[in-house]
Design a protein around this nucleic acid. Structure first.
Lengths: 212, 212, 212, 212
DNA sequence: CATGAATGAGTCTTCATTCAT
DNA sequence: AATGAATGAAGACTCATTCAT
């Protein structure tokens, strides 16, 4: 779509602040996914971005600030994804719940690279309260949607042996576990298959609304 | 089994080596759980162990070797846990499957500390093939057990709309996700509750063998 | 003397350059007095001046050049001060010598801020011959005045047990030491008191010309 | 005196903590005197000490801690010097006061190198309250001695036109100024000459106790 | 003239590892 | 076996200087 414009303009030496920040965030994602957290250095990041050593501290207060921004980017992207899926799902609760789950397996989000970064963050979450905070800022809303939709389905379906809290938790646990599986054992089952697992769970929780 | 040959020297001959190693491994678990991977230094480890700075490199070839041993310890402990649970489960397949799952939530294993260490390792797994290898060495067998038991239940129960592979995967995904949940949001649901989620899943997969 | 030739362009033509330089010098004095030499960065200076980061290197060849100019400014101000005091002192040698000393304690010059900067420079003088050179350029003349005046007083007073060199040196040593005292222990004795010390010294050196 | 012993022992690779600390302090004095404060790096220090780069942070918490220790060393040395001179002075107050002053010009203390370091510290004193504190810790006692001795001389001599505070201040100001002179203009007057200036001041303050 | 993004050499500091004792 | 002093590579971060705009 674009790209040929850039050859005309001989790659600017200076760029607006937001452009550089994004560039560095992408480079951070790249490096973290390739090397993990502890082995990623700022030099790796700047080299991946094709920039000089000093830029990071020009655009971010510290390495930690860059990481915060990186997680923020990922969380925001995730947020954007499921809310778009949700918006496109129409008014049916079952449809909406399914959509939120499908969003998690969207090609753009559910890449090996990004999964690696997610788990790098989660592996540190306990000692960096900031990470939890940033993640929650975007993710709590999703939790509430899922819980609310489960409640609605239970009410409309008359599932007497199921609490909304448990259903919501099982669904989220399944999607989280699926991501972990994709990260650790990408060969065991592909993305689509793990999505099917989640949909299968949905059908078993709410048999009147979904079919296997 | 061993040890009684050299009765002259009463157990101290070979023990110290192993004692020190275990001591260091425990200290490593402690420090990793408190500070994460990247912030753990060998000084932290030796201090936690109450030993001098130089011992680590005396007992382990490198920091990495200590980490390998630490993961090995954890994996072995996990292995020991579920195989004991399995052994105690009798001959019933349903009972056995449930036991393997229950093992994951045993108090000794499923602590916040150890979970933190597990995810620290998983967060690095992608770049340290060793970690995967060590983990698989002990865990593959569990996978096979679960798969085999799912097959048996399906066969005996006549669940036409369920493949053993998918069932096994869903179960493992649920237990893995449960651990992640316990790590990241310990307040959201306690250990017992997440175990119930897993048992609930079992009941929905194999309604003739389990009841909610 | 200059400026009136280009009446068409009202003072803005050449002024800005000098205005900016002065602005930066004042900002340098401010920052050096607040943070010392080694902790002062050009960013501090430009921020204090309310200017953008790049200007310093536009108006000065280097940081060092700015510092040279700053010391020059201070030295020139000092020069202007004692020569004005001297000019106002009339023809009496005793009066003149006293005036030169009084100049050192003038409110405009003898501030904590400027003293701090002076000693910052002197603390570096050994390794920056430039500083000594700049300082001497303005100060040698003062030394000679003091020496000459001491000679005159000795001659006119018949102080047999005093050499002009020693007297001059003792006076200058006392004023220098007074500045150091004001910098390091501003609470011990105020400006006026230390001036009195110097005048007291004068009276003891030249009892026929001054009284305590 | 000593030195040949060291050739027998092939320069130990490891040394007691205090030996290394002193070694580093001496190297710091050396480097600060040669390059000043802001241009001295830890690499300079360790190279001057013939040690490896990492030792400083092994023996001192930080560069700043090394500097504190360095000033402490200098202050302690000064303290030791004048208290020894004082002890050797006998019981006569005039003798004692003169001795304290003479101590300041002792060859061991009053070197160009050490003077440079002293003024480096004083040039920073305003922004490093620690330096003042360390200095005062050792120097206050000297101030009190001087003041007390001035009081005694005034009492015994009946100097009606002199307050002890002013006398003490003038003496200290003169010695401080002398050090500054030796640092900035070593060629103008040598150590002995500046000591004479101080003794001359003594004679003018207390003519019945000292003669020019 | 002025701005501020970009550069990269240089600083302090950390830390796994080595090794004399 | 154990200690802890010593090493030195490598990291994050700073900052004077340059330069496109």
């Amino acid at each position: 779509m674009s790209g040929e414009i850039e050859t005309a303009q001989p790659k600017k030496r200076t760029a607006p602040k937001e452009v550089r920040r994004k560039q560095l965030i992408m480079a951070a994602i790249d490096s973290i996914s390739k090397r993990g957290f502890s082995d990623t250095t700022l030099r790796h990041v700047t080299e991946a971005a094709g920039l000089s050593h000093g830029v990071v501290n020009y655009h971010f207060d510290s390495k930690e600030a860059l990481y915060d921004a990186t997680l923020g980017y990922l969380a925001q992207e995730h947020y954007g994804m499921w809310s778009r899926y949700l918006a496109d799902a129409g008014n049916d609760a079952a449809q909406q719940l399914e959509s939120i789950i499908r969003a998690d397996f969207d090609k753009k989000i559910c890449t090996h690279t990004k999964l690696a970064v997610w788990f790098a963050f989660w592996g540190q979450a306990k000692y960096r309260p900031n990470y939890i905070k940033i993640h929650n800022k975007y993710d709590n809303e999703r939790d509430q949607h899922i819980l609310e939709l489960c409640s609605q389905l239970i009410a409309s379906g008359g599932y007497t042996n199921l609490e909304a809290e448990r259903a919501a938790r099982m669904i989220e646990t399944q999607t989280d576990g699926a991501w972990l599986s994709l990260l650790l054992y990408p060969k065991v089952a592909p993305r689509q298959e793990l999505l099917q697992d989640c949909l299968d769970l949905l059908a078993r929780l709410f048999p009147d609304h979904y079919s296997v």
